[in-house]
Design a binder for these strands. Structure first.
Lengths: 103, 103
DNA sequence: AATCAATAGCCTTAAAATAGTCCATTGAAT
DNA sequence: ATTCAATGGACTATTTTAAGGCTATTGATT
């Protein structure tokens, strides 16, 4: 089941979550910006889904105490000890063009 | 327990996770960029932690089928049905400067 | 060990975000 | 109902990123 939202919608919904985190801590945008080391405008851009840099986002997450969330994107796959033994490490490059899982 | 990593380190570690997701699907950067609708350079920037826009990130996550991850930042707090009744909705603004939870 | 596609890195131009400031609107507290 | 800080929106200058193209390096395959 795919996410049908457009990138714009995703960014806006994401901004709302950032806002929620901030408001749960009851700090204003100015304070958050200061603690994060970014401009007030950068926080506004993030929360309103108006476009932002990844750097601004990371700094703000850090200030909100949620930098750990950034580590949850690609969790290591859980494998059994037996599988562990013969598990090959992840490839460093995609395989050459013909045998790919492409569309 | 705080995350002690610098923003640069966080961004680099995050980029590695993006790369892992891509490699698990065995597609190359060019294909991912094409499917995401961004430039090849944007994918490189993301994976190498060299700076990127939130828009590029969102498009790439979407192409990787992981846009749902964006919804996991601020999960709704679980409360009991009894609490539900008297639960006030989250404030829309931080409270005025004196009584804040500031540093 | 030879091959060659995947990736890194650099360049230029265009587009977008940051930073700083100001003013208008509005939610929450009195 | 009034007040006023929190927020939104707009503007300019500066910095950063996107896009597109090119070359050098290197990991995976044979």
């Amino acid at each position: 089941m795919q996410n049908t939202k457009t990138p714009e919608e995703l960014e806006a919904a994401f901004g709302q979550q950032l806002r929620d985190l901030r408001l749960r801590r009851n700090i204003d945008q100015r304070q958050l910006a200061e603690q994060a080391g970014v401009a007030l405008n950068a926080v506004k851009n993030l929360e309103n889904g108006r476009g932002a840099t990844l750097t601004s986002l990371v700094k703000v997450l850090r200030a909100l105490g949620r930098a750990d969330w950034l580590e949850t994107l690609a969790p290591a796959v859980a494998i059994s000890p037996m599988q562990m033994l013969k598990a090959k490490q992840l490839r460093q490059r995609a395989s050459k063009a013909k045998g790919n899982a492409n569309a």
